[in-house]
């Protein structure tokens, strides 16, 4: 089970780093929105990783990820100050972090 804790920690750390990077890349600078983004990912990423780890059900990966996108998009829409298209931003940010993460894993 040591691998699970490692996976949780690394997934969350990389996700926070990459999505924060995407946040700035899109020109956003609102600090409270940045903090909301980080908290939204703390809310969704460990849950997604844990559920996937416990089930190892490959077809479930897409619904899990979509749920995370929708949950984060909902938070941005309800509490964000400068998210013009919250669900689109959530989708793009998650796609960016996932793709970058896969690249990093392949390079390591």
């Amino acid at each position: 089970m040591d691998g699970l804790y490692f996976a949780l920690a690394v997934s969350l750390a990389l996700t926070l780093l990459l999505e924060a990077g995407f946040f700035f890349l899109t020109g956003k600078r609102d600090r409270k929105d940045l903090l909301l983004l980080l908290l939204a990912n703390v809310l969704t990423n460990p849950v997604v990783v844990l559920v996937f780890w416990l089930t190892l059900w490959q077809p479930g990966k897409i619904p899990l990820e979509l749920s995370a996108v929708l949950a984060e998009g909902f938070l941005y829409q309800k509490y964000g100050r400068a998210f013009k298209r919250p669900y689109l931003f959530s989708l793009a940010a998650n796609a960016f972090s996932y793709g970058a993460g896969v690249l990093i894993q392949r390079l390591i």
Partner: peptide, 13 residues
């Protein structure tokens, strides 16, 4: 490289 993945970083076990 992530197709058909959609979103978020998932450290795959």
């Amino acid at each position: 490289p992530a197709l058909p993945a959609l979103a978020d970083l998932l450290f795959e076990p």
